Every structure is written in structure tokens, then in C-alpha cells.
Computed example of a mutant assay.
Amino acid sequence: MSNLATLRFFSTPAHACSYLEEHQATTLFVDPKARITPELYGDLTRIGFRRSGDYLYRPHCNACTACIPARVRVADFTPRRNQRRVLARNAAVRVEMIRPLFTNELYQLYSRYIERRHGDGDMFPPTQEQFASFLMSSWSDTRFCCFRDPLGQLLAVAVVDLLSDGLSAVYTFYDPARSDLSPGSLAVLWQIEFCRERGLPYVYLGYWIRRCRKMRYKQDFQPLELLLDEQWQDCPLD
């Protein structure tokens, strides 16, 4: 294991929480000057850190523990009936995994998604600079997983980081006009299958927040493990 003890951490002042109204949040950041290796990134992911651009962070709120790191245990995952329907509806969709890059096609999809789905959030309005600084990183092994329909139209992009024990699902954006295809669920199902085929045990889904509707979807992917009291625990949330 990498030497986490040598890292320095910094915390932000209290600020408005992005997930729970009328809550204040504090965020713990890894020193931006630290040299992040793949091994160190994996170790930080396993203790609940996430990536935003080049920054590694996790919630560090004194009075609240609502944000709980979550990961899918791939080997034991079986799609539910509604998830099998999602896979059937998207049987003709093809996925291309590419290195991160900026193109007008990718950015336009990202922009439409933010404007339609997160117009009331702190990511609005979207910008080209935000696209690059949020999704890309100078040190991570990142891929853009591009989902296209049979006509070649871009439906969704799942941004993932490759880890030694699986994938970290950084962010997914999709065409709001094609939400009937459940592209968000499709992206997670595809990541699980990608890991299964390669013998990788986990898909890290970020934070599960019971009181936040937008973050509760993660409990649909069972078995889900939650990081509670610094231990990953099997937590059925049906």
C-alpha cells in the first residue's frame, strides 16, 4: 500500500451543501502539489476519496455523515428485471472507450445535459473550461466511454478512471431527449460488465445519500457496499 501518512490534507471553510438544502458542508482535499500515482489514487479511492479534475476530495462535515462512499461488488451482481429491460432496449447501442479529449460533439452533449438536468446546481452554466477542468486530469488513467445508437448518434458518455481493482465512475452525461432509454442506468450496467469480463471486483459509484433523490439511484445496483466506520460493509438498501 502507498504511504498515505505522508500526504497533507486541507479543508475548506463551511459552504452551502450541493446535495442537501439548508445544510453546510466542509470538504477535505489532498494537497494539490502531491504527486499522485496510480497506487496512491487507488488507496485514496478505497478510503472514500473522489476525483474532480486534478483534485482529490471527500466530505468532511462535523455534524453530518449523509455522504457515504458506495461501490458495487461486481462478481455477485445480477441485473434486476427493470435493468434487464434497459439492456434489451439498448441492445444495438455500441460503446467506444477513448482517451479524454475535447470535441464539439462531446461538449454539446455535456452542455445540453447540464442545462436540462442541473440548471439549478453549481455546475450551471456549463463552459468549455469547466468541461476540461472537471472531467480531465493530468495524472489519472481516464477514459471516455461513448455510447452511440445504430445511426452513430452520441447518446451518453461515461467518464471513468481505471483502477487496479475496478473502475471509478467519475461522471456520466447524456442526451436529455433520450432519457427513455435510461442511459444513466445503462452506463452503470456497462461498467459492471466491463469489470466482470476483466475479473475486476468493484465499480466505485461515488457517494450514496439517502435524503438526496439524485444520489439514491445507486442503491438499485446490488450488492452495494458502503464505507461505514472506515470499513466496507454489505448494505442492502431495498
Rank of each mutant, 00 (worst) to 15 (best):
L4T: 04
L4N: 06
R8I: 01
L20M: 10
E21N: 15
E21R: 14
Q24Y: 10
D31H: 05
P32N: 07
P32F: 02
R35W: 07
T37Q: 09
T37V: 09
G42D: 13
G48S: 06
G53W: 05
G53A: 05
Y55R: 15
P59K: 10
T65L: 11
A66W: 00
P69I: 00
R73E: 15
V74L: 03
F77H: 15
T78R: 15
T78Y: 07
P79L: 07
R80I: 03
R81P: 01
R89S: 09
N90T: 02
V93C: 14
R94S: 12
E96Q: 05
I98C: 13
R99I: 04
E105M: 05
E105Q: 05
Y107E: 03
L109V: 04
S111T: 14
R112L: 06
R112S: 09
G119Q: 00
D120T: 09
F124R: 14
F124E: 15
T127G: 01
Q128G: 05
S133T: 14
S137D: 04
D141P: 00
F144E: 09
C146E: 14
L151C: 01
Q153I: 05
L154S: 04
L155T: 02
L155P: 00
A156H: 04
V157I: 14
A158K: 05
L163T: 08
D165H: 00
L167H: 02
L167R: 10
S168L: 09
V170Q: 07
D175K: 09
P176S: 11
R178C: 07
L181S: 04
S185D: 14
W190C: 07
E193G: 11
F194E: 11
E197T: 07
Y202A: 00
L205S: 08
W208Y: 13
I209D: 01
I209E: 00
I209W: 05
R210I: 04
C212N: 14
Y217S: 08
Q219L: 07
F221A: 08
P223L: 11
E225G: 11
L228R: 15
W232R: 01
Q233G: 02
D234I: 01
P236Y: 12
L237W: 11
D238W: 10
